[in-house]
């Protein structure tokens, strides 16, 4: 299926033509797919917390256990993998510094790290116990990463950012737009709704430095929509020109929700 959100690419082609992308949540389903399928298009800084992304990296090389001496035909380009706990003090800064030291620039930030605990409000302690952690990972960390990247590299490069079509993609969820009753998603959904709204505000403020900000909100993958589609929505946003939008990946065709700005009459 072709995404309806592509638009004309204005990406800066530098070096070997690959854009530099910081990807959080790199060991998740979506993150792993991104690492293994888009490494030819991006120099990926793959940030993971616990589980290692199953992709070649600077210290991680594929090998066939039955024929270890034979190079793999489809070995793939390595990502630059960094283990970090982005909720810990200083780790966002460390990741951004390492990315810049390695690649000299950052074109795309994909906030795909997620914390998800589904539990009922009543009759379980799990929801309360996980509430703050979900908010932190799903809302605060994307904010922090974007701000750190902006301060470390994007600020003062407004025109360069626009020419390079630099942007942020926050990986949200349809749970932030719809109420799935009886699923125990309350806190997860609330955090994704917050991320959607944060995306709008971030787009508003980052327009001053020439950086676009959007979000994807996919249905469950791979059960309802394919991982390919969820991942391609990210690359389509990166190469396109949308701003302050949420791309809903569901049904037969992606839908774009434009986040409108609003000002009270007295201010207008």
């Amino acid at each position: 299926m072709t995404s309806s959100i592509g638009g004309e690419s204005r990406a800066l082609s530098a070096g070997e033509g690959r854009r530099v992308c910081i990807l959080t949540g790199a060991s998740g389903v979506l993150g792993s797919y991104f690492c293994t399928h888009f490494a030819d298009r991006y120099d990926i800084v793959a940030v993971y917390r616990r589980n290692r992304p199953q992709a070649p990296a600077q210290d991680y090389e594929a090998v066939d256990p039955l024929e270890p001496g034979r190079p793999l035909a489809d070995a793939g380009r390595p990502v630059f993998a960094i283990q970090a706990d982005l909720t810990a003090e200083g780790d966002c800064e460390r990741v951004v510094e390492a990315a810049l030291a390695r690649f000299d620039r950052i074109d795309l930030l994909v906030n795909a790290a997620v914390a998800s605990t589904w539990a009922p409000m009543l009759g379980s302690e799990r929801l309360l116990a996980s509430a703050l952690g979900q908010l932190t990972t799903n809302v605060v960390v994307p904010l922090q990463m974007a701000v750190v990247v902006a301060r470390a590299f994007w600020q003062g490069r407004d025109e360069e950012n626009r020419r390079a079509n630099r942007n942020v993609v926050n990986v949200s969820s349809v749970a932030g737009l719809r109420l799935y009753a009886g699923s125990g998603q309350s806190m997860y959904a609330a955090s994704k709704a917050a991320l959607n709204h944060l995306t709008g505000h971030m787009a508003d403020e980052f327009s001053a430095i020439g950086v676009r900000v959007n979000a994807t909100a996919a249905e469950s993958f791979p059960s309802i929509v394919s991982i390919e589609r969820a991942a391609e929505a990210i690359t389509a946003l990166d190469t396109g020109s949308l701003n302050r939008s949420i791309v809903v990946v569901d049904g037969d065709r992606d839908e774009v929700i434009q986040l409108e700005t609003y000002a009270p009459a007295a201010v207008r």
């Binding site: 199953q54 594929a62 090998v63 256990p65 793999l72």
Partner: peptide, 12 residues
């Protein structure tokens, strides 16, 4: 019996 022929050599 092996589900995958893609294992990973790591250095660190």
């Amino acid at each position: 019996l092996l589900a995958s022929r893609r294992w990973w050599r790591c250095t660190r």
